[in-house]
Amino acid sequence: MAASSAVAEQRLTVAGYGGSYEQVMRSSVIPTFERENNVRIDYLTGNSSDNLARMQAQRGNQTIGVAVLDDGPMVQAAGLGLCRPLPETTRDAVYPIARLASDQAVGTGFGFTGIAYNKDVFAQKNLPVPTSWMDLARPEYRQHIAIPGIDNTYGVHTLAMVSRINGGSDSDIAPGLKVLRQQINPNVLAYESSPGKMSEMFQSGEIWLAVWGSSRVAAMQQAGFPLAIVRPKEGSVVLMTAGCAVTGSPEPALADKFLAYMISPAVQLAFATQYGAGPTNPATKLPPEVANRVIYGEDQVKSLIGLDWDVVNRNRADWTRRWQREVER
């Protein structure tokens, strides 16, 4: 009985997103893991920046066992020594693009950043469906666009792609800043990073289109809102949710086990169905109605564009200063 009680007292803190992601975790992921392993999971809600800051603040005295962040902040976390190397079985279970930061973190779900638009508004106003990142500069959208800020991964993706297609690169974002300031900024009603606020602006009709993520659009579609998302012809940027086992945390074996569970086909199916995240484990099988809504299969995975996060993270503070000074004035 004493041994059984000790096992029952095992606890693991998992830090991850709120909103619809948290709902899937609490309803379809965590209860099964707790039941099958006779453990208790404490779920700590926060965006990527918040949870990365918590990991840094707890260095040497970690309470977080597993962290789930966007892929960019996750690469930064690993670079700061906050993530442990992946077990081989976890590393080898995913597509190569989902092996992050020298195999210290693993992608747990594929999304992409594209252009979301209100299908009803576009039909009523007879507007052409956007096909390019540069469609954000079309004059008919004046004051009806929202773009997340540079503090948000979607904002980083916007700057990177506008820079690339206007002669710049991940290490030279000056062309992107110029185009955003001169051509796109007049159309922007708000630089909004809050998913809740973005949803409200779509629902109120204040905005007709936005740079946003496929999983956010999927959540609004499931709620019945007529939102669609396109992958611009120049490419859509992969946005992975990524997990790592935190260095120096209690219960390291349990953390590794939970991370492996996150990329198991059953959990990948749950996130694809309920959150709109494409599976990073190629062994995951999706029904056609789900597969059609997410990144699925080797061909689609190969088409995704990634950023050089080492370069981006090294220059992120400078990008932020210049964005705030030149774009979001």
Rank of each mutant, 00 (worst) to 15 (best):
S303I: 10
A270R: 03
P288W: 07
T247C: 00
V290M: 12
G276C: 04
V290L: 10
S215R: 04
E251G: 01
D308K: 08
K233I: 14
L239K: 01
S303P: 07
R293E: 15
S214A: 13
A255E: 10
A223V: 06
D256Y: 14
S215K: 03
V246N: 06
L307V: 09
I229W: 01
M220L: 14
L227A: 04
A255M: 06
F258N: 11
A219H: 05
M262V: 02
G297P: 12
A218V: 03
L269P: 02
A277Y: 11
L239D: 13
A291L: 09
M240C: 05
P288Y: 07
T241N: 15
C244N: 11
L259P: 08
L254C: 08
A218L: 03
T273M: 00
A242N: 11
L286Q: 11
V230Q: 07
T284Q: 05
I263N: 01
V246Y: 09
M262K: 01
A283Y: 05
Y296D: 15
C244F: 07
A266N: 13
E251S: 07
R293H: 12
Q300M: 09
P288R: 13
G248L: 10
F258I: 08
L286C: 11
G235I: 07
A242R: 04
A245C: 06
A266M: 08
T280V: 09
W212D: 06
V238F: 01
A218Q: 07
P282W: 11
V301I: 14
A242W: 04
T247P: 00
G306L: 10
A228L: 09
V246K: 06
Y261N: 12
V267C: 00
D299Y: 11
W309V: 01
E298Y: 05
Q222E: 14
G224W: 02
T284I: 07
V301D: 13
A272K: 08
D256I: 02
T247Q: 14
A219N: 13
L286H: 09
V267L: 00
Q222W: 08
D299H: 13
Y296Q: 13
G243A: 14
L286S: 09
P265H: 08
P265E: 06
S303D: 15
W309R: 08
S236W: 11
G213H: 11
R216E: 15
Q221A: 04
S264L: 03
I263G: 00
K233D: 15
M240S: 10
P265S: 06
A291C: 11
L304N: 05
A260M: 13
V294P: 01
P232G: 06
W212L: 00
G248R: 08
V294F: 07
A245K: 02
V294L: 02
Y261L: 14
A218N: 10
Q268D: 04
P279R: 08
G224D: 00
L239E: 12
D299P: 05
P226F: 04
Q300D: 08
M262P: 03
P250V: 13
W212G: 01
